[in-house]
């Protein structure tokens, strides 16, 4: 999972101040500013020892080395290599994998599908979550009960959400599909590509609305009561207060959720696609992450798969930075 941790950047700024310069003399000749930066995130009261922290860090760094750093670096290297499907020969091809990838119309159609999918999923998830958050913020009784129920999808695997909706919308046995057919709508996600796309958008949103909802509830609760009260005295109704005061005040949370929804749509919806449509019909739901898997493990086009990985890595890096930016802003607004 990409950076889900709100916290990381906050403290860097927060704890840089109170440090003690107790290093050996030779160190104090180093620029003070550099030293101050180097000691950020350290407790003022700390221990000075290197053996124990070494052993405390060793397990994490070792696992990261094996399963994070080596694979990531190898993904970078493989993107510039061409390996035959049996892994017998490998040759250095420079940017050829990328050139081939960007010329491939299949890849661009996958980009297009991903774009439509993530955008639709984002809009649907956030808007439904906003309506629900407004409603549960407005009512006084039964908040807890509604929250308990609305949170349930968090526990359910994306793959199960996909399988569940695939069943409900299955043209042969699904109750919802029967209803649609009863209304004269010719529903068939196995043949119609926009129906298939709609299906995975619904499954992805169904699973992710609760996550947005929880963050919105927390943000709405922290909107200062005094401001809402003065708006009330000025004659603003509940809806007006929500649209004119609460929404702008929680804007940083909204941006944060938009980024998180993109991350979710791009990287965590693999299971939904694989368990329901398998990229079909005819590539209509083959989102980028699914295509990396297809090319890497099914058609064994390793060079292309690695080049796609690198493109996704760049995207993930970009989104991580965006996410941290919004977190900083969320804190600055003190919302």
């Amino acid at each position: 999972m990409p950076a889900r941790n709100s916290a990381a950047t906050l403290s860097v700024a927060a704890s840089g101040g109170g440090l003690r310069l107790r290093w050996p003399l030779r160190r104090s000749f180093i620029r003070r500013t550099g030293d101050a930066q180097a000691e950020s995130g350290l407790k003022r009261a700390h221990f000075r020892e290197w053996r124990l922290p070494f052993w405390l860090l060793a397990p994490q760094l070792f696992i990261l080395l094996l399963f994070f750093f080596i694979p990531s670096i190898r993904a970078l290297i493989q993107a510039f290599q061409l390996t035959d499907p049996f892994g017998a020969t490998t040759q250095w091809v420079g940017f050829q994998n990328f050139a081939r990838l960007f010329r491939s119309s299949v890849y661009w159609s996958s980009v297009q599908v991903t774009l439509i999918f993530t955008l639709a999923q984002n809009v649907l998830t956030l808007s439904v979550a906003l309506v629900l958050a407004f409603a549960s913020n407005h009512i006084l009784r039964g908040r807890g009960a509604y929250r308990t129920v609305l949170l349930l999808p968090y526990a359910i695997a994306p793959a199960i959400a996909g399988i569940m909706l695939a069943f409900l919308f299955n043209p042969r046995v699904g109750p919802v599909a029967h209803m649609l057919q009863g209304l004269g709508f010719d529903w068939d996600p196995n043949r119609n590509s926009s129906h298939a796309l709609a299906l995975i958008v619904m499954a992805a949103s169904w699973k992710h609305i609760c996550y947005n909802y929880i963050f919105l509830i927390a943000a709405l609760l922290s909107v200062p009561h005094s401001i809402l009260e003065s708006a009330y005295l000025d004659g603003a109704g509940p809806i007006q207060r929500f649209l004119r005061i609460s929404l702008p005040m929680i804007a940083p949370t909204l941006f944060f959720l938009i980024v998180i929804n993109f991350v979710y749509g791009l990287f965590e919806t693999f299971a939904i696609v694989d368990a329901t449509t398998r990229g079909g019909p005819a590539g209509a739901t083959s989102i980028l992450v699914y295509k990396v898997y297809q090319d890497g493990f099914v058609t064994l086009d390793l060079g292309s798969s690695a080049a796609q990985s690198v493109v996704l890595m760049a995207l993930a890096l970009f989104l991580t930075f965006a996410q941290f930016r919004f977190i900083e802003r969320r804190v600055n607004y003190s919302v």
Binding site: P2, R4, L64, F67, P71, S72, V263, V292, M313
Partner: peptide, 17 residues
């Protein structure tokens, strides 16, 4: 390690495992 989810580096992570 926060920046790159496992989904974007599946082939080499598989090879590592």
């Amino acid at each position: 390690s926060l920046m790159l989810p496992i989904e974007v580096r599946i082939v080499p992570t598989y090879e590592s495992a």
